[in-house]
């Protein structure tokens, strides 16, 4: 596998952090409304070790998703260091962040964003193709995940854009767990799932922890949080009062 050689570099010792934030600040500047910079977060710090699952907590609007987006490189940090697998995302080039996302850092968001008309099976297999897994092996792995997440087989050849919210969420999870990322960001992975599928997702998270993945997640589902998370970090502590 093409990612094999690269993975060795990122393989960390058990007690060494896979995700490490220090002094992270974020502000938004709304140029079309006067151009004032609005600080929303300052001094954010946390670390996640391999095999550990950490929950981000705090009231709605406290900045949980903003922090996750900064770690993913989707939002730009105003200052601070965001080191994932040895790369400082806050200072990295686009191609470095994309390589990180391909090999190291998976992200299960609440929304599925795909090219229209691409079959579900290919949507789920794509992260594997991106790291050089042969097409047949990638499709087999995608099929196994879709079956495990109870997506009916007749739907696999259809685009997920027309699926129900719960089905889209499960396709999103299958895609996020297709490649064995050393680090994972999970935004409400069990939201809008029935008990059976919730159990499958929790088992996937436990299996990822067992193979050494460092996981940072937002879980409003208190039972799920208690079961898979080792620690909690309250992001309210980093919020800047408006």
């Amino acid at each position: 596998m093409a990612g094999g050689a690269a993975m060795g570099i990122w393989a960390k010792k058990k007690d060494q952090a896979m995700i490490e934030l220090s002094g992270v600040a974020k502000s938004f500047t709304l140029y079309n409304q006067g151009g004032a910079a609005i600080p929303v977060m300052a001094g954010a710090a946390l670390s996640v070790a391999p095999g550990e699952c950490v929950a981000l907590t705090g009231a709605s609007g406290a900045g949980k998703s903003t922090l996750m987006r900064m770690i993913h490189g989707n939002y730009l940090a105003a200052s601070g260091r965001i080191v994932v697998g040895g790369l400082d995302v806050a200072a990295a080039e686009p191609r470095e962040i994309l390589a990180l996302r391909r090999h190291v850092l998976g992200y299960v968001s609440q929304f599925l964003r795909v090219v229209p008309r691409v079959p579900t099976l290919d949507v789920v297999a794509e992260p594997l193709l991106a790291v050089g897994v042969p097409v047949e092996a990638a499709r087999d792995r995608a099929a196994a995940l879709l079956a495990r997440l109870n997506i009916p087989r007749p739907l696999w050849d259809l685009s997920p854009t027309t699926f129900s919210g719960g089905e889209q969420q499960r396709v999103n999870i299958a895609r996020g767990f297709a490649h064995d990322y050393p680090a994972l960001l999970l935004d409400e992975p069990t939201a809008s799932l029935d008990p059976g599928n919730r159990e499958v997702v929790l088992e996937l998270i436990e299996a990822a922890k067992a193979r050494g993945a460092a996981i940072l997640g937002i879980f409003h589902d208190a039972g799920a949080r208690a079961r898979v998370c080792d620690r909690e970090v309250d992001v309210s502590a980093f919020a800047v009062a408006p």
Binding site: G8, I9, G86, A91, A92, A99
Partner: peptide, 11 residues
């Protein structure tokens, strides 16, 4: 550190 971490992939 950055350059080292991505030697395996990025030309």
């Amino acid at each position: 550190m950055r350059a080292g971490a991505f030697r395996a992939e990025a030309p």
